[in-house]
Write a protein that binds this DNA or RNA. Structure first.
Lengths: 138, 138
DNA sequence: TTATAACCTGGAATCATTCCGAATTGCAGA
DNA sequence: TCTGCAATTCGGAATGATTCCAGGTTATAA
């Protein structure tokens, strides 16, 4: 995943700086699902000497614009970022703030939807809020 | 709708002040779909002499907590509020920022979902981003 | 009518994110 | 390998929606 992202960026004419490499490395870390900008900042800092928070934001925005990652925007909480691009439902635990992926049973066909609703869908955001397995135990 | 909201608030022990009445009146206005806090502030001001923006926020938060209205949270844009509580998809136009409702073809059964996923769903947020009929014409 | 807890308000505080401008650097081409 | 420069970086300041605060006001039960 890391190398494929770097390849995509190079193709688009972006320079691969140590800062960007570190950020991409963190995003590719499967154990760290749906991190926020500060999580990414903290982790990436361990991998490269100089790194500013504004650089993290700029890079994440760039990756979003390229459609390589997806931003999950929130109002009161930090935004979160995910590498899983294909449509799915995000299960968001209101207790521990963990975000889990849940594959869609059926996918939407934008063309079909356009016919029915006259609305042209380019992007979806599907979230179920509630309590995850671990938090329900308590 | 206006009277039913006021009834609910009274039941919960809330006082009905002129400010709250004005805000509820604006929320009940069907022509003004999914307004933001500032829209509500501007409209409600016409209906009552003294009104502060902080009061609007406080009242909207209260109504959300009571489950009477629903807040659609955004990061860069203003949050929006809707009176339609039953689950549906919000179609959000990226051009004009209009938000349209689209009824779900099938609803989720939380119990069913809990069995399958071990996640207890209390609330959903379903959004399709894209372009509405009017904006597609251009 | 009164007592009082709830309510209202303007201004200050918050906080994630963006902006800015000066310094630095990756890298294409020589 | 070296050079030139557009792209990149980064600290600090700005932004903007929302929340907090403390003092004055008021709806409502008794």
């Amino acid at each position: 995943m890391k190398t494929s992202i770097i390849k995509k960026m190079k193709e688009q004419g972006f320079k691969i700086t140590p800062q960007r490499a570190a950020i991409i490395e963190v995003l590719a870390d499967e154990t760290l699902h749906h991190p926020g900008a500060n999580d990414i900042y903290r982790q990436a800092r361990k991998k490269t000497k100089r790194l500013g928070l504004s650089t993290v934001y700029a890079t994440l925005n760039e990756l979003c614009r390229l459609g390589i990652i997806k931003m999950l925007e929130f109002d009161k909480k930090e935004n979160r970022y995910e590498g899983n691009i294909n449509p799915h439902i995000n299960l968001i635990c209101k207790n521990c703030n963990r975000i889990l992926d849940y594959n869609l049973p059926v996918s939407i066909d934008p063309k079909e939807f356009l016919k029915k609703s006259r609305f042209w869908v380019t992007d979806t955001r599907l979230e179920y809020y509630g309590y995850c397995r671990e938090c329900r135990k308590k």
